[in-house]
Simulated assay, not measured.
Amino acid sequence: MTTTAGTETVGAIGDTRLGELRERATRIREHVADMCAGPEGGHLGGAYSAADIMTALYFDVMNLDPDRPDAPERDRFVLSKGHAAVGLYATLAERGYLPVDELATYARPGSRLMGHPVRAVPGVEAATGSLGHGLALGCGFALGARLDGHDSRTFVLMGDGELQEGSVWEAAIGAASLGLDRLVAVVDRNSLQLTGDTDSIAAMEPLADRWRGFGWAVQEADGHDLATLVRALGTTPWEPGRPSVLIARTVKGRGLPFLEGRTACHYVTFSERNHAKARAVLGRSRKEETR
């Protein structure tokens, strides 16, 4: 059955904790803005639409230890939309997997922080970026954990444009057939891809029904409501024997009103002026979150 995650602003995590998570998400967006001000720029739009999702996962939901990044009992995260690597690097740095100062080396010669994530970076489970492969990797991680007797979960974050890849649906069939109920997919449903609106390129709706037809337990949520994200993702698996998918309704470029919902934010190389503008906007958000 398809269900919708609750919409109340404050749930089990409470006001103080919610404020902390919101501040953390803003810090992640600040780091991404700084990386996108470098000479190579970066995929800002998809990193911003997913920032709240990654905040909920890394700072509340997932069982992990930055001091033991390869602990066999850890939960695993696969960034299938690997082009949003700047968002993952920012999240890993905030969580303590690498020094925040290292983010300044992004895309520079000799840096391990490449345009797409690689295993050389602590906390990165697999090199990704060839779209459509992440869910299959997640199936492998989830099945491996089950065979090893671990109760860990595997989370896979995908873009909605990525769902145009047939390999996604092959993996979806396999996951349901294997009963991988410790596998959780999250669709960053920001409705935009490089060349325009996703539904004008390839119709996706009714997306929830499609996942349900492939044997998955489905919920939908506001992908920027941290309390709802924590509650929904933290209670997986939703149905015994079925993998779970959360369709997170998001806004590309969320956090910078002058870029939100525009294809222009897909890949950004900030000028000095626009970097300062972005930092000022995010700085005001941080002040409001800490009041």
Rank of each mutant, 00 (worst) to 15 (best):
1 M>E: 11
3 T>I: 15
9 T>M: 15
12 A>F: 10
12 A>N: 11
12 A>E: 15
18 L>W: 15
19 G>P: 11
20 E>C: 11
20 E>H: 14
22 R>N: 12
23 E>H: 14
23 E>Q: 14
25 A>C: 13
26 T>G: 09
26 T>P: 06
29 R>M: 07
32 V>E: 11
33 A>T: 05
33 A>H: 03
36 C>P: 13
39 P>G: 11
41 G>S: 02
43 H>S: 07
44 L>W: 07
44 L>Q: 06
45 G>K: 02
47 A>M: 01
48 Y>V: 12
56 A>Q: 02
57 L>Y: 03
58 Y>L: 08
59 F>P: 05
66 P>T: 07
66 P>Y: 05
67 D>T: 09
68 R>C: 08
69 P>H: 03
70 D>F: 10
71 A>R: 07
72 P>Y: 03
74 R>A: 01
75 D>K: 04
75 D>Y: 04
77 F>W: 08
77 F>A: 09
80 S>L: 09
82 G>Q: 13
83 H>S: 03
86 V>P: 05
89 Y>E: 02
90 A>R: 00
96 G>E: 02
98 L>N: 04
99 P>G: 03
100 V>A: 01
102 E>H: 08
102 E>P: 09
103 L>Q: 01
106 Y>M: 05
107 A>E: 10
108 R>E: 09
109 P>A: 13
114 M>W: 08
115 G>Y: 05
116 H>E: 10
119 R>A: 09
127 A>F: 06
128 T>Y: 05
128 T>N: 06
133 H>G: 05
138 G>H: 07
138 G>S: 09
140 G>W: 09
141 F>N: 08
143 L>H: 14
145 A>E: 03
147 L>A: 12
149 G>N: 10
157 L>A: 05
159 G>D: 01
160 D>M: 06
166 G>E: 11
166 G>K: 10
166 G>F: 12
167 S>R: 13
170 E>F: 08
171 A>I: 04
172 A>Y: 04
172 A>E: 03
173 I>V: 08
173 I>D: 10
175 A>W: 04
180 L>V: 04
187 V>A: 00
188 D>Q: 07
189 R>C: 02
189 R>V: 00
190 N>E: 03
192 L>C: 06
197 D>I: 04
200 S>D: 08
203 A>P: 04
205 E>A: 08
207 L>A: 01
210 R>Y: 00
213 G>D: 08
215 G>N: 11
216 W>M: 05
216 W>E: 01
217 A>E: 03
223 G>K: 07
224 H>C: 13
224 H>Q: 14
224 H>V: 13
225 D>I: 05
225 D>P: 15
226 L>G: 07
228 T>S: 15
228 T>R: 14
228 T>W: 05
230 V>C: 13
235 T>N: 15
235 T>E: 15
235 T>I: 10
236 T>Y: 12
240 P>K: 12
241 G>Y: 07
242 R>V: 00
244 S>R: 04
244 S>E: 01
247 I>P: 00
249 R>N: 09
249 R>Y: 06
250 T>E: 06
253 G>R: 01
255 G>I: 04
256 L>P: 06
258 F>P: 03
259 L>V: 02
260 E>Q: 12
262 R>D: 07
264 A>Q: 13
265 C>V: 12
267 Y>H: 15
269 T>P: 15
270 F>P: 02
272 E>N: 12
275 H>Y: 14
275 H>I: 09
276 A>F: 13
280 A>R: 13
281 V>I: 12
284 R>P: 14
288 E>I: 11
290 T>R: 15
